[in-house]
Design a protein around this nucleic acid. Structure first.
Lengths: 229, 229
DNA sequence: CGCCCACGGGTTGTATACAAGTGCACAACG
DNA sequence: CGTTGTGCACTTGTATACAACCCGTGGGCG
């Protein structure tokens, strides 16, 4: 995430623009699948249903379009970006590199406390092995910690975009077949490499972890995807 | 009008929105430095000088903001994103990974004709060694060719954003001290690895190439800062 | 003399009005 | 009955009007 010191001492609790809220809402709905892939989105309908005018809604749609979550139709409107297996592979490959970079940079900046915190998270994951909810939450926390350690806002910004796409496929796969194996060992390998101060190994471990995760998602998708044009 | 049974796959009559034009224009100006880093941008002034109303201008600013080329001021306005050495390193690290990924994927999809084309470009670069203009142009063509071969639109989209930032630093450095050594050998290494069908080597070669290029830019920037009048 | 408050210029965010272009349906005609 | 022409409803893109908010300034007051 971008630098968000939640408690801002300054006098600027700038009013939360509705456009941002609309953007976040639509983004979540697209990722969650509430808005189905391929569904056309028209501005008057959306603005009416969300209770805002077209101006902020258009802003949100433009951002989503820049992010690739909505496609521009040849006629001019937009639709929720469709899903397909080839793109699932592509976005995961990108994510693997970006997370790998963050891991390498996190390794270079890691303090002993950081390493201890990572190991603690891995231990927690091992302790709750089997409880998917908890494992996923701790996994997200693990990656968030690395992101914080890396301190590379540009990479984080791009990663946020890519994660949105990855999550679309992940959630779609989870809906068909909830099968997240435990990645505890892979996380431990990452933490271990960081602890040893080996950025290249850390990057490789994280990249392998992401690639394995992507492989699982892909398999879940191919298992029950009957026809794909 | 005439018979038009369905949407033809040909040229879509997409009318060019002025917002896009404004976005492209501002983007180029920011990258080129015509709009100085840190400079504040106010909507009424810009809309007036560009001859469009605030609506399309706002759209452009939002896109630039999402791209990170403009910052949101705490008061609410926006300014051209400032430059600093640490961020130069960060964006280059990201670029190295993304270009590396594209190279690996290009390698996996490369046809003999593709390989021949890459080698031809490298030969051309060697032939015009010394003419910076030409070398840069051929280098861009080389990277574009790899991008096309990789066929990863998501990676390309992110890379486009990152390249914008990299170019800001590169142009800033070039303005102070034009010193692009020849990267012909590095390009040849990339083409060679692709020709051998070794994606990992190709990715590593491209990544090394980008990192070396970034190092040069960085050096030029540090030189400049130390010799600032 | 210093502090506080009110006010005005200016900026952003939002809503609405208007123009332009496109696909679709329906009806007329060969 | 198939084809074609026209009108309409709908959509997007843009411009403008309005409200909320912030900072700076100047006068009034302690």
């Amino acid at each position: 995430m971008t630098t968000q010191p939640q408690v801002r001492p300054g006098p600027a609790p700038r009013r939360q623009s509705g456009a941002r809220a609309v953007y976040e809402l639509l983004r979540e709905r697209i990722i969650a699948g509430t808005l189905a892939p391929g569904e056309r989105l028209t501005e008057p309908l959306l603005s009416g249903s969300l209770g805002v005018s077209r101006t902020p809604l258009r802003e949100a749609l433009r951002l989503l379009q820049a992010e690739g979550l909505v496609d521009e139709l040849p006629t001019g409107g937009v639709r929720v970006a469709p899903l397909n297996l080839a793109d699932a592979r592509r976005v995961s490959a990108v994510r693997a590199r970006l997370e790998g970079l963050l891991t390498a940079e996190a390794c270079e900046r890691a303090t002993p406390e950081d390493v201890a915190r990572l190991h603690r998270l891995v231990d927690l994951m091992a302790a709750v092995r089997g409880h998917e909810e908890e494992v996923l939450r701790l996994g997200a926390q693990f990656h968030g910690e690395i992101e914080r350690m890396a301190d590379n806002a540009w990479c984080s910004a791009l990663l946020r975009q890519i994660r949105g796409h990855v999550d679309r496929y992940r959630l779609l796969a989870a809906r068909r077949r909830a099968g997240t194996t435990d990645h505890v060992d892979e996380h431990r390998a990452v933490a271990g490499a960081i602890g040893r101060g080996d950025p290249a190994a850390a990057e490789a471990a994280m990249r392998a972890h992401i690639e394995r995760s992507a492989e699982m998602t892909e398999q879940a998708l191919t298992d029950q995807t009957s026809t794909t044009p």
